[in-house]
Design a binder for these strands. Structure first.
Lengths: 220, 220
DNA sequence: AATAAAATTTAGACAAAACTAAAAATATTA
DNA sequence: TAATATTTTTAGTTTTGTCTAAATTTTATT
């Protein structure tokens, strides 16, 4: 069962959407993939025929176990390539995504395994997202949103849930990257914004919408 | 001018064929690409419309300057990826080709340039084939076929012109790889076969068809 | 030079993946 | 609950790249 690039892209998008919502509907997927609802319906039929998803017309859909495994294979490849691009080719972490979108469709299983070993079997990609292993197992880390951290407790940035160019640009401005150490100094109840201290920089204030997307773990 | 994967494959095959023969004809290209002559004709029209080749129906064709540059871009990517696969991911040199066939179509120019630097700007791929630079310039080396080497002069293997699995398997059997040092001990005029000494191994005899495809340069 | 053979091109069809526009099913609201 | 709005699907096209079969052009042969 080799999949086409288009099938892989659909499977991957469905996977990401159902992480949040469980069931996925046609228009949501069409918006996510920047395509039309009719095109989505066409592909859903093909994926159903290949038993990659449970789908009844007009009722929404979700990936089958086989579909989930296929999605995790693509996610694994995507994140391994992102790691390679950032760590070895020295790309900025906000530039790796579109290139990994192409590389993730290279089919050789042996390539993926050798790449994984070459990289030292990393558990997290440059955005802090977990890299599934070859069996689809996803590493976990005890992480919390920056909005849920008590004052004065030092934490380290482990991932960023919104990875839009705008968000990454904003973080760069605040000198926040993966692994950056942060302490929350103050919590303003007026609009939920936080005063934080980024290691080696003066305290600054970030808005709640930004803080909500920054995930951190306690420094042990 | 981004090209499709299919266009790139045609351009690359035409490039390789015209290296030998100058002008290329439809059936030869169809055989090389394992497709039908009618499909070739269809694509030739598209490539002509994009000014990538000179072509008059029934008369054969060859790449334009723009076409040659496009071909060299693909060849460059192919050979850089082969180098990465063999040198860093430790693939056997006879396994890298099909994977590089996929990787060569990844489009990012910045990726290619960073990969090139990461690899240390290599001049030759794992098969000894020259890697064009970003301007399409191809490094040259003074190499001769093993059949043209005088007796007792030590030489080093620099490339292999027939890269079929059968040929590579045969060379592995003889302990011949890129960089291997060889001395020709004897030239049998009966069938043109050669007695050779591969460094660290006992003398052996290889047939003329094999020797013709092994290219070497003098050890300085 | 006429005819046969080979090579090449055209014509028409198909599959994948997209689209638009219209129809059908579901959901919402007055 | 009937009317309206929204969502989803169907029907019919388009594009890219392929194919087969038939027609055309070129090349080789008697």
């Amino acid at each position: 069962m080799p999949f086409t690039t288009s099938e892989e892209n659909y499977i991957k998008s469905i996977y990401h959407l159902q992480q949040a919502s469980g069931m996925v509907n046609t228009n949501t997927l069409a918006a996510e993939m920047q395509t039309r609802a009719a095109s989505v319906t066409d592909m859903l039929k093909k994926l159903k025929a290949k038993k990659l998803l449970q789908y009844e017309r007009y009722r929404g859909f979700r990936l089958s176990e086989a579909g989930k495994k296929a999605a995790l294979d693509v996610v694994r490849k995507h994140r391994l390539w992102e790691y390679f691009l950032a760590e070895h080719l020295k790309f900025d972490w906000d530039k790796v995504h579109p290139i990994a979108e192409e590389l993730e469709h290279i089919s050789s299983d042996e390539l993926v395994q050798r790449l994984d070993n070459f990289l030292g079997n990393p558990s997290f990609d440059p955005h802090g997202d977990p890299i599934p292993d070859r069996n689809g197992k996803i590493p976990v880390i005890n992480q919390l949103s920056l909005t849920d951290i008590p004052l004065k407790k030092p934490v380290r940035v482990s991932s960023v849930s919104n990875q839009s160019a705008q968000m990454l640009e904003m973080l760069k401005h605040y000198h926040i990257a993966l692994g950056t150490q942060i302490t929350v100094l103050n919590h303003f109840s007026f609009d939920g914004s936080l005063e934080i201290k980024v290691l080696k920089h003066s305290p600054c204030i970030i808005s709640e919408p930004v803080a909500k997307n920054v995930f951190v773990h306690y420094v042990q």
